[in-house]
């Protein structure tokens, strides 16, 4: 799925790195606990979260993720956005809650068969 499709499905607003809209992504994860993202996530390109601090971007960077989606209409501050920009990670914000946002992406085909159990 292209990030442009993710934006459309989530009715999201892009906050930085809109040049990556053509980028293909294969999977996503949703979590407010960065410890768990670092421990269990593998090859997921999108992080959906309601947590807003620079460590969200750092976590995404360490995991080679391409996009962060802030849920529940959250908009991070400039420090978070400039760190994302510096690392070429697209940032979006959606009004949907975490559960709904993940559900919309999953039900539209953004998942990999058989890789979801830890």
């Amino acid at each position: 799925m292209k990030l442009s499709k993710v934006k459309e499905l989530l009715d999201a607003e892009i906050l930085c790195c809109d040049g990556a809209l053509d980028c293909e992504v294969m999977n996503a994860c949703g979590s407010d606990m960065m410890s768990d993202v670092l421990a269990y996530v593998k090859d997921q390109s999108i992080l959906l979260t309601g947590l807003m601090n620079p460590q969200v971007v750092r976590t995404a960077q360490m995991m080679d993720m391409k996009c962060i989606v802030f849920v529940r209409g959250k908009k991070p501050n400039e420090a978070v956005l400039s760190l994302a920009e510096e690392n070429g990670i697209m940032v979006m914000t959606t009004e949907y809650r975490l559960y709904t946002a993940c559900g919309l992406l999953f039900s539209n085909g953004l998942y990999c068969e058989g890789v979801d159990k830890v």
Partner: peptide
């Protein structure tokens, strides 16, 4: 509250 401290740090480093 910052998203860390789940007790996964050291086990994760080992992994």
């Amino acid at each position: 509250n910052l998203g860390f401290g789940a007790g996964m740090g050291l086990p994760n480093i080992k992994k």
